[in-house]
């Protein structure tokens, strides 16, 4: 993770925006496309109802290697009202986004100084995309946007911003650098959203436990299925405390006990996330989630996206252990400061 990656996310968002503006149809056409997209979804479904394979313990088998790699933004881009792209529009949006992601690695450009995203597989186009036709991950509110933030949530956001400001500039100390660049936390969720690169997941099941290995930062979610209560409130964590159970063929996971540092989209530590994993076919899992945090959003909101099968294995992502970026950046900034101070002193003596 690095700041350039964050910048590239912005670029991708812009690219998608541009793409969708270009292909945005009239509202009548939008209706037709929505119907077409629904047909595509239906057509993609197997003729016979899918029977999820079972583990030896008789549970629906979600095991294997999966990805949620996509360019689908959490919120629907501005000026776009339809819920689904047509497959052609999606191809176009993905192609444009991939081009933007590649563009920044043109040899000899400033953007290319750090390292080549495409060479090291850090761009999305080199991993299988989920080909999600939705124009946003958020499905409720139906406009695909986060619901209004409560006054408490607004105050918290302002307080957090003020606190960050008090800590000084971004490179004054390591603690001011974004969490992802520090290998502390990056989109692990829940909800589990595509991290941009390393979008691989490995699910393993036993009778009373589901584990989800998240390749990015080698996070592991260990989810007990034995009906035990959540950990006491005194225990707080980045990924929260998850409890799972089966509802028919769907794995339902409820997560609480977050800390106030991950602050997912401005959430409080009282956020509760409910996830639903349903195997749709040999190749796909439907992933749905509900975020409930009345102290941040006026109403709960929901998202949905697929996970699709990829080849394993998931390799060790020892991010912190190999983090030269943080040390080198801080060193460079200190050097610049030293040079500036020397320059100022020289001018002062003249």
């Amino acid at each position: 993770m690095n700041d350039r990656f964050l910048m590239s996310l912005g670029a991708i968002a812009l690219a998608i925006l541009v793409a969708v503006v270009l292909v945005a149809p009239t509202s009548a056409a939008a209706q037709a496309q929505k119907a077409a997209a629904a047909t595509v979804t239906k057509a993609a479904a197997p003729a016979k109802p899918w029977t999820a394979p079972r583990t030896p313990d008789g549970q629906p088998d979600l095991q294997g290697y999966w990805t949620n790699n996509s360019y689908t933004p959490l919120e629907r881009p501005k000026d776009l009202t339809k819920e689904f792209y047509t497959p052609e529009e999606l191809r176009e949006a993905e192609k444009k986004a991939a081009e933007r992601e590649e563009e920044q690695t043109v040899p000899g450009t400033t953007a290319d100084v750090h390292y080549d995203f495409t060479q090291f597989g850090l761009d999305r186009s080199q991993t299988r995309l989920t080909d999600n036709l939705r124009t946003s991950v958020i499905v409720d509110p139906p406009n695909g946007k986060l619901p209004p933030v409560t006054s408490e949530g607004q105050k918290r956001a302002a307080d957090r911003a003020a606190e960050r400001k008090k800590q000084g500039a971004q490179y004054d100390q390591v603690q001011n650098i974004p969490l992802g660049s520090r290998c502390v936390y990056q989109n692990a969720g829940p909800p589990m959203l595509p991290p941009g690169y390393n979008p691989a997941y490995q699910i393993l099941q036993s009778k009373d436990t589901v584990t989800i290995l998240i390749e990015m930062l080698h996070e592991v979610r260990v989810i007990p299925l034995d009906g035990r209560p959540h950990a006491p409130q005194g225990y707080r964590s980045w990924l929260g405390d998850s409890r799972g159970h089966w509802e028919g063929d769907t794995l339902v996971v409820e997560t609480t006990n977050f800390n106030d540092k991950s602050a997912f989209r401005g959430a409080s530590e009282n956020m509760k996330v409910t996830e639903r994993f349903t195997r749709l076919s040999d190749d796909a899992i439907r992933y749905e989630f509900t975020v409930n945090d009345p102290s941040t959003w006026e109403i709960p909101w929901k998202g949905e996206m697929p996970f699709v099968k990829i080849n394993g294995p998931v390799f060790e992502h020892a991010c912190h252990e190999g983090n030269y970026g943080v040390a080198n950046t801080l060193k460079a900034v200190r050097l610049e400061e030293k040079k500036a101070a020397e320059e100022a002193a020289r001018k002062g003596t003249k």
Binding site: Q173, V174, V222, R228, A231
Partner: peptide, 24 residues
């Protein structure tokens, strides 16, 4: 209630590794 809790220690090591590179 035994369970594996989250012990993300990266944050706790950062001043050890990068503390000398602080502005102050």
């Amino acid at each position: 209630n035994a369970q594996i809790l989250e012990y993300k220690c990266v944050e706790f090591s950062e001043d050890l590794i990068y503390g000398h590179l602080r502005k102050v």
